[in-house]
Design a protein around this nucleic acid. Structure first.
Length: 778
DNA sequence: GGGTTGCCCGTTTTT
DNA sequence: CGGGCAACCC
């Protein structure tokens, strides 16, 4: 690759290009086009929800290449998620073909790993370093803390990890941390642990996610010549979701952009919802200070949502201070205002779930695909309630979030086996599976091995041959060694998937789960089988390991007609025809912890989250709250979220609970007083009637009156009534005959919602999740 | 090494 | 309420 082969402008070609403007520019509106065509110098694109930022980014790359301003590998484009980079790559390929694969396009972390694989040696990293996941990190820290006699209960490893992670997010290596920054955690010993942790990582030839940004930064600081290499290479830099960058990422970008100064950052300050993970909205707010000559382009034309949805969202977010400010306008193509956002109160969380699902069912019957609808919640625990109803109703659904494929125990074990086959010095992998399945290698045996490993300066694996071990133990460990070696030899001639099958079969690992009688065991075996399928796509083990350590969402594919339930955080970047937004209650949304820990800025981030939620909807957004919600086994009552109050009345309809003329209906909210008032004593009134003060008891009555309505105001004759009947029946499941895939038939003894105690005919009493049971009708 | 009991704690989690 | 985990017992 000759970096200088296009140094001289090719006038002839340029003239030709000028005459034949690329057709892909025609699809852009004026602002988008400006964002694409302003290739030189720093550009900040403030891109609201649904304004076509991915289109701008991909077209910009295509345009730069088309204009022959750079070769593909001279363009760096970074995203946050694998999903985003995959999508961009696919779109780009459609536009420019195979050249798309030569562009440096990937997540920040994958770019970081690429740099470290090449130059990590300068920092003392071996080329085949491994990437730790948060689980490994926490285990490591816990071990270190216990060695130093820290009370794990008072100072949790997770807490310490958080502190260290924040330092890394800020681009701080241990020597860069100031005393003031260190004051907080673990009686000021956090920094000590940070140092120790980094040392330990080096010993293990490992890095964590934070290091994938921090270490390239350190590398560039210490080796200007390496930095220069990259500065010369990257003529154009593009950044997606810039509002989510942390300081380390910002510093990295700034360094790289010093070369040509052509940096284009795309982001939306109103969608910054990850500050608690170290993201700094400041980066986007101060862009113009860092690059005074920067051009700022606002993309405000929204191609996704109706005018009412945009109006509601805009009104809400305008309550935030310190925004760069932009107002979403519906694209001309969309005629009319659309449907107003509906707001409803329910008596209880379960009733809310019931009604949401009923409404979804009805929409489905009207022809709306399940995949066009979504339930977006604030906290994961909310999903359970919906899951129960969906299961009963038989609607195909998918809960997104929760346990990711590569975070599952069995998958991590399987990957650890492969890691050890690949590299016997991988102590962490060794520790993970040496006694899985049980081989009689307990803590005592491991102590001996660790000791020997230290003395002889070898890995745990190699320590086996030196360590003083009892004959029986020696025998088992030596056959373990043999097993790994056999697999290694196999790996030279067969594909990874074959190696995995071999090692997991021969080690007895699969057998271990097959024999396990717990409820999840079956699923674990299936997951391992699934892993074999994933492995089929890989030609080498290390290729797979790298993939597995950076990619976490392979099983999040939603099949054609499934309803998704997910957190608001997880919904960013997605869109649906209909969006249900339950749980808008004070304490839950905005979440109490966000208010407690971050005060006003916490509230603003919650508000941005609400904004993200509403703007996911194309045609319909339905917001609801429950007056009573079971949390931690206790029913707590809650006031409607203040965010409901902040919705502009002209864009919403609220359900009128006053039942004035014997009718229940949605009305225009003419609230003189607010639907919800911060002053707890005021009545909520949006029917125009005299308000005043009320007792808690009255509120309850008000709430009770809104019982048994659903989103569509079809109280008495909707399918809701039928369902409700069924619900009563199924929730009283004690005494019923049920069937379980593994345990066979049995009788329900105790019913506590999600999990049941069942007396099985063949295996006795077990506690099982209702999801695994089928009801038998006699 | 394995199983049981009792206690604590409970947001969001792109990589 | 229920999961996770440490302490305890066999």
């Amino acid at each position: 690759m000759d970096l200088f082969d296009i140094e001289e402008p090719d006038f002839e070609n340029e003239a030709k290009n000028f005459l034949s403007k690329p057709h892909f520019l025609d699809e852009l509106n004026q602002e988008q086009r400006q964002a694409v065509e302003t290739t030189e110098g720093p550009v900040l694109v403030l891109s609201g929800a649904g304004t076509g930022k991915t289109k701008v980014l991909t077209t910009r790359i295509a345009y730069i290449l088309h204009q022959q301003k750079a070769r593909p590998w001279q363009i760096l484009a970074v995203t946050f998620t694998n999903k985003a980079s995959k999508e961009m790559k696919e779109r780009l390929e459609k536009m420019i073909g195979g050249d798309a694969f030569s562009v440096w396009l990937g997540t920040f972390h994958s770019i970081g790993i690429r740099i470290l694989r090449k130059h990590g040696g300068l920092l003392g990293l071996e080329q085949n370093f491994i990437v730790l996941d948060p689980d490994d990190q926490e285990r490591l820290l816990k071990q270190m803390m216990q060695e130093d006699g820290i009370d794990i209960k008072k100072h949790t490893p997770a807490g310490l990890l958080d502190v260290i992670q924040r330092w890394k997010d800020k681009g701080l290596l241990p020597h860069g941390v100031t005393t003031a920054q260190n004051s907080g955690y673990c009686e000021g010993r956090a920094l000590y642990f940070y140092e120790k942790y980094q040392k330990r990582l080096k010993e293990l030839n490992a890095v964590d996610f934070g290091d994938l940004l921090l270490l390239p930064l350190a590398l560039f600081q210490s080796y200007p010549d390496v930095l220069e290499e990259y500065q010369k290479q990257f003529r154009y830099i593009l950044v997606d979701e810039y509002q989510d960058t942390n300081v380390a990422q910002y510093l990295l970008l700034r360094m790289l952009a010093k070369g040509y100064g052509n940096i284009c950052c795309v982001g939306d300050d109103d969608q910054s919802i990850y500050s608690w993970r170290g993201a700094e909205v400041e980066n986007i707010l101060t862009f113009q200070k860092i690059f005074p000559q920067a051009l700022v382009i606002r993309l405000e034309r929204n191609y996704r949502s109706t005018a009412h949805i945009l109006g509601a969202a805009s009104g809400l977010i305008s309550n935030n201070q310190g925004r760069l400010g932009k107002t979403l306008k519906p694209a001309d193509e969309l005629q009319g205002m659309g449907e107003k956002v509906k707001v409803t109160g329910f008596w209880s969380g379960s009733q809310e779930a019931e009604s949401v699902v009923t409404s979804i069912l009805k929409e489905q019957q009207k022809g709306v695909a399940l995949s066009d609808m979504a339930i977006l919640v604030r906290a994961t625990f909310q999903t359970r309630q919906f899951e129960e109803v969906l299961m009963r109703t038989g609607i195909p659904y998918k809960i997104i979030g929760g346990f990711k494929f590569y975070e599952r125990e069995e998958i991590k074990d399987a990957v650890a086996y492969l890691r050890l086959v690949l590299n016997q010095n991988d102590d962490l992998a060794f520790l993970r599976i040496v006694n899985k399945p049980k081989r009689g290698v307990g803590p005592a045996a491991l102590d001996v091995l660790t000791q020997t490993a230290k003395e002889k300066h070898v890995s745990l694996f190699d320590a086996i041959s030196w360590a003083p071990l009892k004959p029986l133990l020696r025998k088992t460990l030596e056959s373990f060694i043999q097993l790994i070696k056999n697999a290694k030899e196999k790996s030279l001639s067969v594909y990874p998937s074959e190696v995995a099958r071999f090692i997991l079969q021969e080690s007895g690992y699969i057998q271990m789960w097959r024999q396990d009688k717990s409820v999840e065991a079956q699923g674990r075996v299936e997951n391992v089988m699934e892993l074999y399928t994933v492995l089929d796509d890989f030609k080498t083990i290390d290729e797979f390991i790298e993939y597995a350590s950076l990619v976490t969402d392979t099983d999040e594919q939603v099949s054609s007609d499934q309803l998704v339930v997910m957190t608001l955080h997880a919904s960013k970047g997605l869109e649906f025809k209909h969006v249900y937004l339950p749980g808008w209650e004070e304490g839950l949304f905005p979440h109490q912890k966000a208010l407690d820990e971050a005060g006003e800025s916490g509230l603003e981030e919650e508000r941005r989250l609400a904004y993200v939620g509403i703007t996911r909807a194309r045609e319909r957004a339905l917001i609801s709250h429950a007056f009573n919600r079971r949390i931690y086994g206790q029913t707590q009552n809650a006031l409607p979220s203040r965010f409901i109050d902040e919705l502009p009345p002209e864009h919403i309809l609220v359900f009128d609970p006053t039942n004035k003329h014997g009718q229940r209906e949605y009305i225009e909210p003419a609230w003189s007083n607010k639907y919800f008032s911060k002053n707890d004593n005021e009545t909520w009134d949006y029917s125009g009637e005299k308000t005043g003060f009320c007792e808690a008891g009255n509120k309850s009555r008000w709430a009770r009156e809104s019982l048994n309505i659903d989103f569509d105001n079809e109280f008495s004759f909707s399918s809701f009534g039928v369902q409700k009947k069924e619900k009563v029946q199924t929730s009283k499941r004690v005494g019923r005959r049920v069937h379980h895939e593994i345990f066979g038939d049995g009788t329900v003894l105790k019913d506590s919602g999600g999990s049941l105690e069942v007396s099985f005919d063949s295996v006795g009493v077990k506690k099982v999740k209702s999801a695994f049971l089928e009801e038998l009708f006699s």
